[in-house]
């Protein structure tokens, strides 16, 4: 499902409003698959494996129901934030013990420096930090409404 370009500075063009996945790794797989179908990445198997290794290094859950899994790889064609939403919540190893309901997957090309990559992650974190934004993202009835929230949040 494509949102078009939301002016978050980078093309936040992918949103999965209702993830089918019930677990962390299957959620990662579902989001990678969506990014692949949208033509944002090559070699989804490689990207998925990288995301899995990243999670083993330390949980990417920020708490308050938010996770920002991230990957930087030459298999990423252009920077993307992929948003996955799940009402039931997914266990993500968060320090506050809360399951995750909003997942921002930050994908950056391999040639990006750490600073730029972390800038992309920071944008997602800035949106997710505000309780009002989280609530609006979770209750938005359509991908278009999600895009609207992100547009407002990053304005």
């Amino acid at each position: 499902m494509t949102l078009g370009t939301a002016p978050i500075g980078y093309d936040l063009s992918l949103c999965i409003p209702n993830l089918k996945a019930k677990g962390k790794e299957s959620a990662l797989a579902e989001m990678v698959s969506a990014a692949h179908l949208a033509g944002a990445i090559r070699e989804p198997d490689l990207l998925l494996e990288l995301l899995r290794v990243r999670e083993r290094v330390g949980s990417t859950a920020l708490g308050k129901g938010v996770a920002i899994p991230s990957a930087r790889s030459v298999t990423v064609l252009a920077p993307r934030l992929v948003l996955g939403r799940t009402a039931r919540g997914i266990e993500w190893g968060a320090a506050d013990g809360h399951p995750v309901t909003l997942i921002f997957m930050a994908l950056a090309p391999g040639e990006w420096r750490e600073e730029a990559f972390h800038g992309l992650i920071a944008r997602a974190a800035a949106v997710a930090r505000l309780q009002r934004n989280r609530h609006r993202l979770l209750s938005a009835p359509s991908p278009e409404a999600v895009a609207e929230v992100l547009r407002g949040a990053s304005a």
């Binding site: 290794v53 083993r56 290094v57 330390g58 949980s59 990417t60 920020l62 708490g63 920002i68 991230s70 320090a95 972390h118 992650i121 920071a122 974190a125």
Partner: peptide, 12 residues
Amino acid sequence: KLGLAAEDTERL
């Protein structure tokens, strides 16, 4: 600072 953990580098 972003609140992201990355301590288990042995597994990496």
